[in-house]
């Protein structure tokens, strides 16, 4: 599976975060009450994960297929000296698979040493600062991976519990 035509490069997600931080000056108390989330799309639906779990966002690049892997592991990518498995988040959440497009991004998540993981998403949107009180618990989501919802821009964004997704992955292997 070879990917995008553009040369692989890192999208400075710090810039995204900085842009978001400039949206409004908060006092410290306010910071306590807001969550910073990175939002992205799977198909048309918006999802988000906590910003502090994101290590970097890279463009689609060549994914080396690894034999004997569960179907939701697309393969591995080389990232500046590291080789990391890429989880197809669509498949993990039970959505229909879809060929990567130009907008597809690989989000690399922080983890202790071996636990670094990358997830493939259809498009990265923005860093959201969501007031705590606009977050509500979600029920009956796919595999319990979506634990909360929040409203943003007239849509309901599904907040993904990254640990649960990864735990499940690890459990399956």
């Amino acid at each position: 599976m070879s990917g995008a035509e553009a040369p692989p490069s890192t999208v400075g997600w710090e810039n995204l975060a900085r842009g978001a931080a400039n949206l409004g000056v908060d006092d410290e108390e306010d910071v306590e009450l807001r969550r910073e989330l990175l939002s992205f799309r799977l198909g048309e639906s918006p999802y988000a994960i906590p910003v502090e779990r994101v290590r970097e966002i890279v463009r689609m690049r060549e994914i080396t297929i690894v034999p004997r892997m569960p179907s939701w592991v697309l393969g591995v990518v080389a990232l500046r000296g590291e080789v990391v498995q890429v989880v197809d988040l669509r498949m993990r959440l039970g959505l229909a698979p879809c060929e990567p497009s130009r907008r597809s991004r690989i989000i690399v998540l922080h983890g202790d040493d071996e636990a670094v993981t990358a997830i493939l998403v259809d498009a990265v949107e923005a860093v959201l600062r969501i007031p705590e009180d606009s977050v509500s618990p979600a029920s009956g989501s796919e595999l319990g991976a979506v634990t909360e919802l929040c409203e943003h821009g007239g849509e309901f964004v599904s907040l993904i519990d990254v640990d649960r997704v990864l735990e499940f992955c690890a459990g399956r292997s």
């Binding site: 060549e62 004997r68 080389a78 080789v83 989880v87 040493d113 990358a118 990864l166 690890a170």
Partner: peptide
Amino acid sequence: IKPIKGPVRQIPGIAGATELGDQGAVL
């Protein structure tokens, strides 16, 4: 040889991966 990081810890038959100069990872 680099370890393969990610949720699947042991891949039978694969000892790790390496980066080649030109393109991507090779198992």
